[in-house]
């Protein structure tokens, strides 16, 4: 069997988790699914680079993280303020279905710098270990834990005393 077949079938099983990660990174549903589409296309195009002994999920998540960073750069919106503003617009048109608490959380997440946000998405949402996140992001484990710690402090401050 082709590696590409194995990757494609692995991606089918991974799709729900990939969408969850994309939602945590990119925020609104439409942006997140645009990101998922880019990730699927890249993963299929690069399926020859995937080694079957490597975990497919980490490989795909790394593609997702890089695609998200590319997207931020391409839009010239690497500044987190822009992402926050975009999230604010979406709140006005499509976000009404979200419970108030989740809306607050989404805004707080969107306001995080990308470095912090991706660590929250990988570790706290996707459940990667610190080591796995460090390997994926190609940074030392200490960098992951310090970013996570600062991200937590920011989120807790945003969310008030109830979190």
């Amino acid at each position: 069997m082709h590696t590409s077949d194995a990757v494609r079938e692995g991606l089918i099983a991974l799709l729900p988790r990939l969408r969850r990660l994309a939602r945590a990174l990119a925020g609104q549903t439409a942006d997140a699914d645009d990101l998922v589409q880019v990730v699927l296309e890249r993963a299929l195009a690069r399926s020859a680079q995937w080694r079957p002994d490597a975990a497919l999920d980490k490989w795909v998540f790394a593609i997702a993280r890089n695609a998200w960073r590319d997207e931020l750069r391409a839009r010239g919106r690497a500044q987190h303020l822009f992402v926050a503003e975009e999230s604010g617009e979406a709140v006005a048109d499509g976000g009404a279905a979200l419970p108030a608490q989740q809306l607050e959380l989404a805004q707080a997440l969107a306001a995080l710098p990308p470095d912090h946000r991706e660590v929250v998405a990988l570790v706290l949402v996707e459940g990667l270990s610190y080591d796995e996140a460090a390997a994926l992001l190609e940074v030392p484990v200490g960098t992951v834990t310090s970013r996570l710690s600062r991200a937590r402090a920011t989120l807790q401050a945003h969310l008030g005393s109830d979190a």
């Binding site: 729900p16 988790r17 969408r19 969850r20 939602r23 989740q102 959380l105 929250v120 706290l124 949402v125």
Partner: peptide, 16 residues
């Protein structure tokens, strides 16, 4: 509580 809130916010995506 924050961990739980994040899971509550994003885990439902798995069932969409």
């Amino acid at each position: 509580a924050l961990n739980a809130q994040l899971r509550a916010a994003f885990d439902p995506v798995l069932d969409e």
